[in-house]
Amino acid sequence: MTIKWRKSSRSNADNGACVELANLPGRIGVRDSKNPTAPALALTPDSFRALLGDAKAGHFDLP
C-alpha cells in the first residue's frame, strides 16, 4: 500500500512547524514533515476529531 501524505494548509513553513496527514484504512495518519521516517500516529477518526478540538481550544499552546 502506498501512503499519500499531505501537508496541512495551516502549517507554518517559516519555522518548520509542519504536520502531514494521510488517509489510512480506518485511521488517520499524522506525522512531522521535518522527520518523515520517524514513527507516525495512526488515530481513529474519533480520536483525530478530539485531537483537533483540543488543539483548537488551545490545550497544547505553549506559555
Rank of each mutant, 00 (worst) to 15 (best):
58 G>C: 14
32 D>Q: 11
32 D>G: 09
58 G>E: 14
47 S>G: 14
45 P>R: 06
3 I>L: 07
37 T>R: 05
4 K>R: 12
23 N>K: 08
31 R>V: 05
4 K>C: 01
37 T>V: 09
53 G>L: 03
9 S>K: 07
35 N>A: 13
32 D>M: 11
38 A>V: 10
32 D>V: 14
28 I>W: 04
20 E>V: 00
58 G>Y: 14
62 L>T: 15
1 M>F: 07
57 A>G: 15
9 S>I: 11
30 V>K: 04
43 L>V: 07
59 H>R: 15
6 R>G: 02
36 P>E: 09
38 A>G: 11
58 G>L: 11
47 S>A: 15
7 K>L: 14
42 A>Y: 04
21 L>S: 01
47 S>Y: 01
1 M>V: 13
25 P>W: 01
10 R>S: 12
17 A>F: 02
48 F>Q: 01
21 L>E: 00
28 I>R: 06
25 P>R: 08
39 P>Y: 03
62 L>W: 13
3 I>K: 04
34 K>Y: 06
3 I>M: 07
48 F>I: 00
43 L>E: 13
9 S>C: 02
58 G>K: 12
12 N>K: 00
5 W>E: 03
62 L>Q: 15
11 S>P: 09
19 V>C: 03
4 K>E: 15
41 L>H: 12
20 E>K: 00
22 A>T: 06
45 P>Y: 09
39 P>F: 01
28 I>T: 15
39 P>H: 10
28 I>L: 12
61 D>W: 10
39 P>T: 12
31 R>G: 03
47 S>Q: 13
59 H>G: 00
24 L>E: 05
26 G>W: 04
5 W>I: 01
46 D>Q: 14
53 G>F: 03
8 S>R: 05
50 A>W: 04
35 N>P: 00
